[in-house]
């Protein structure tokens, strides 16, 4: 494993570069195919509304994957991720308006642990609402 960030170079509060990830209906169809999750709430507006959702929503695991990119881009080596967890607090609603939605992800070092490990806390927001809670990764730095 070869993270490009050195343990001694980070402090509690060090911010990771924030990222903005667009997501449209085509992205959800593609993710459905790649992940094997064909739940119609992620591509069928009529079905989504029938089960009480405001519109088609992104796969929670898609949002989790995008949030992880803030960590793995910072590390360089995605293999340096030791733990990663999230709570799905609100859905990312993806309208069929030619634009879709945007997921804004930020992260900062929340704790320095033994063994060159640090805990990174992430935030993920879409349409002004927090979409992930308790979003944390433990990563091994160089």
């Amino acid at each position: 494993m070869a993270a490009k960030i050195a343990y001694e170079d980070v402090e509690v509060g060090t911010e990771l570069p924030a990222r903005t990830f667009p997501v449209d209906r085509a992205a959800l169809v593609r993710y459905a195919g790649a992940s094997g999750d064909f739940n119609p709430i992620h591509w069928n507006e009529k079905f989504a509304r029938e089960v009480g959702l405001p519109d088609v929503i992104a796969h929670g695991m898609f949002t989790m994957a995008e949030a992880a990119r803030v960590v793995t881009d910072w590390l360089g080596d995605p293999g340096a991720v030791v733990e990663y967890g999230v709570r799905f607090t609100r859905p990312v609603v993806v309208p069929d308006d030619g634009q879709g939605a945007v997921i804004e992800v930020g992260g900062k070092v929340a704790a320095k642990l033994d063994g060159n490990l640090v805990r990174v806390d992430l935030t993920a927001v879409s349409a002004g609402q927090k979409v992930l809670g308790m979003s944390r990764a433990v990563v091994r730095l160089a």
Partner: peptide, 19 residues
């Protein structure tokens, strides 16, 4: 599908350089 171009996912040489 997640739009991630990290070469460790697609390039065996890049993955090997990371160990």
């Amino acid at each position: 599908a997640i739009g991630d171009a990290n070469p460790a996912y697609t390039d065996p040489g890049a993955a090997r350089r990371l160990g």
